[in-house]
Write a protein that binds this DNA or RNA. Structure first.
Lengths: 319, 319
DNA sequence: ACGACCTGTGCACGAACGTGCAGAAAGGAG
DNA sequence: CTCCTTTCTGCACGTTCGTGCACAGGTCGT
C-alpha cells in the first residue's frame, strides 16, 4: 500500500496545512469525499499526521496540583463524563496516558512495560511514531498455572513495538513462581539475567495498579494466578493490590509479604531506579492500591481519572 | 487571559486526545457547544495544539522530484485548485511554506527574513511555537524614496518573532541606495556591520522572488523604489526579477548588473553560505525570476505551486 | 450615573463530516 | 476462464461543526 500512503499524505497537507475542505480535495483527486475522509483517517492512524497537545496544563488543574504536592509526582487528571461506564473510563484514561507516554519516548529509550487490562488498553491507543534505537522490555512474568502468558503480553508488547519501531524483549516466566527456590534458581540463569539487566537500564516504565477487591477485581486476581490458599494469605496480610505483580498494602509496604518472594516483577524499590515511572489508573476500586503504590514511591508520573483522584485525596486529606 | 488558555487546554485534551465530541465537552464544562468550538480554535491558534504532517512526501510527487533532480534542491509542490485566484494561490503556498519553515526552526536558529508580499503572507500563517535562543534578522533593506519601510517589514518580523519567541534585528537601510558610494560608506559603519555579521551567521533564510514583468509585478517594482530611468536600465540588462532585492536575469547571472552595487540584500553568492535557503513562490508570472534564482543556486528548499512548477519544468526540459 | 463601547456567550442555520451499506474492482484458487 | 473472497469506493443519511447575529455583562470616560 504505497500509493495509499501517498495520496493520504497529499490529502493531509491539503486538509491540515492548507485547510481545504474534504470536498475540494476530493474533486482535485477525482475521488469521492468519503474516500478523502477515509484517507485522512488513515493518515492520522498511521502517524502521518500527528496532533499534539502541549502539556502546559500543569499549573491550574487544582486536583492535579494537590496530587503533585501530596506525593511529589507529576499528575494528569482525566475528565470523564460522570455517567460513563467503566470501559469508557478506562478508554479515556488510556488515551491520555498514551499521549503522555508519547512525550516520554525519545531516541534510545528503554521502555519497561507491565501488563494488565489497563496497559492492554493503553497499547491500543499509541499513535505510530518511529523512535530510533528504542527497546521495549517486559517488566514482569505473565505465565500462570493455565497459560504461558506469552500470547497475552505479546499483544501488548507487539503493538507498542509497532508504534515506536522498537525491539522487543520478552520475559518468559510465570507471574508468580510456586517456589521461591525456583525463582532464585532462574534468576541465576543467564537468559533471565539478560532481561533483568535490561529492565534495570530502563528509562521509562509504564504500569497500572491491580486491585484485589472491588466490583472488578483485576486480571491477575481473577484469572487463575492464585488458589484458595493464596487468597486467604492475601487477606491476612492486608494486601489491597499490586504494582507489576508485586503485592502491596494500602500503607505502601510490601517487603515483608511472603508471596512477593515468588513474584517476578520489579519491586517498588527496584522500580525507583527508573527515571520515569508512569502509572495509569482508571476506576474507583483501584483507589486503595493506587494509594499503596504512591506511598511506596513507585510512581513519578500519574494518569488517573477525576473520580479516583478525588477519592484518593479524600483518603489522604479528609476534609 | 489565563483562564481561557486553561479551559482551552482541557478542551483540547478532551477533543483531540480522548476524542470526545464538542457536545460532550460543552455539557461537561457547562457552556455552549459554540464556545467549545471557539476554545478549540483558540487552542490551535495559540499553538496549544499542534497538527503536524510528517514530510515523507518526498518520494513520489513526480513534479517535485523532477525539480529536485534538475536543481539539486528539496522541493514541495503545492496543489492549488486550478480555478483559484492569485490571492488564494499565494495563501495556499504560504501556508505550506510556513509549515516547512516550522520544521527548519530549532533552538538557536538564526533566521534571515526577506520581505515582500509572499513573505508577508507567510508570516501570517506561522503557528506559534517557542524556539529558544532563536534570532530573526532582516536580510535586505526596505526603505524607499517615499517610506522608511520599517512599518512594513516590522509587521513581518514581529509576527514571526511572536510565533517563535525570537529576538528581532532590523536592517534600517533603503532597498537600494541612490549612490553606490553611500552603500560602501554605510557598510563600514559598525551598526550596519553588526547586522551584516548576523546575516552571515544565519542558518535559515526565507525569501520569495520578485517578478519584474507580468500581470502582477512584485511590490518592489510597483511601489516607488525605481524611477523611469531605472526601469529602462533593468530592461536593457534583461533583468527578470530579484531575490532579496538583488536583481537577476533568467540565466541566473547578476554580478555585472550595475544596480546591484546599490542593492542592500545578500547576493546569491552570500546567500549560498546559509545552510537552508527556503524560497517561496506562487504565481506563474514569477517563473522567469524563479528560474534565475534556481540557476544562481540561491535556493536549497523550494515551495511552489503546481502550475508554476510545471511551467518551470517546461522551460528547462521542453517535451 | 449614564451611555458608548468592547468582549464574550448562546442560538440557530447551513456547511462539513463520518460511516453503514451495497455494489465494483482486484486478487486467488481451482 | 470462472467463481469466490477480499478490499475498495460511492451513495446517502444522520451527526457534528463553524460562524453571523443579537444580546448580556463588564469597563471606561465624561
Amino acid at each position: 500500500m504505497k500509493k495509499r500512503d501517498d495520496l493520504a499524505h497529499s490529502a493531509a497537507v491539503m486538509y491540515y496545512v492548507q485547510d481545504q475542505t474534504m470536498d475540494a480535495i476530493s474533486t482535485e483527486f477525482g475521488v469521492s469525499r468519503a474516500t478523502v475522509s477515509r484517507l485522512l483517517k488513515h493518515a492520522r492512524d498511521t502517524g502521518l499526521v500527528r496532533i499534539t497537545v502541549t502539556d502546559v496544563s500543569r499549573g491550574t488543574d487544582v486536583l492535579a496540583r494537590q496530587l503533585e504536592r501530596a506525593f511529589g509526582i507529576t499528575a494528569h487528571v482525566v475528565q470523564v463524563r460522570g455517567a460513563a461506564t467503566e470501559a469508557v473510563r478506562l478508554e479515556q484514561v488510556s488515551k491520555v496516558a498514551a499521549s503522555v507516554l508519547d512525550t516520554l519516548m525519545e531516541p534510545g529509550t528503554i521502555l519497561g512495560l507491565a501488563w494488565g487490562s489497563t496497559i492492554t488498553e493503553l497499547s491500543r491507543h499509541l499513535s505510530p511514531r518511529r523512535v530510533p534505537e528504542s527497546v521495549i522490555v517486559q517488566l514482569n512474568g505473565a505465565g500462570s498455572a493455565r497459560r504461558s502468558g506469552i500470547p497475552y503480553t505479546g499483544a501488548i508488547l507487539n503493538s507498542a513495538a509497532e508504534a515506536f519501531g522498537s525491539q522487543v524483549v520478552h520475559f518468559p516466566v510465570p507471574a508468580f513462581f510456586d517456589y521461591a527456590e525456583t525463582k532464585r534458581a532462574m534468576w541465576r540463569e543467564r537468559s533471565i539475567r539478560g532481561v533483568l539487566a535490561l529492565q534495570a537500564q530502563a528509562t521509562v516504565a509504564v504500569f497500572g495498579v491491580g486491585a484485589l477487591y472491588g466490583t472488578v477485581p483485576s486480571h491477575v486476581y481473577s484469572s487463575g494466578y492464585f488458589d484458595e490458599e493464596d487468597y486467604a494469605l492475601l487477606a491476612r496480610e492486608h494486601v489491597v493490590g499490586d504494582v507489576c505483580t508485586v503485592l502491596l498494602r494500602e500503607d505502601g509496604t510490601w517487603a515483608d509479604i511472603e508471596m512477593n518472594s515468588r513474584a517476578t516483577g520489579p519491586t517498588p524499590h527496584e522500580l525507583s531506579r527508573i527515571e520515569h515511572r508512569l502509572c495509569v489508573v482508571a476506576g474507583a476500586h483501584r483507589t486503595p492500591a493506587l494509594l499503596g503504590a504512591l506511598r511506596a514511591r513507585a510512581v513519578t508520573d500519574l494518569v488517573v481519572d477525576e473520580l479516583t483522584a478525588k477519592l484518593l485525596m479524600d483518603k489522604v486529606e479528609p476534609v
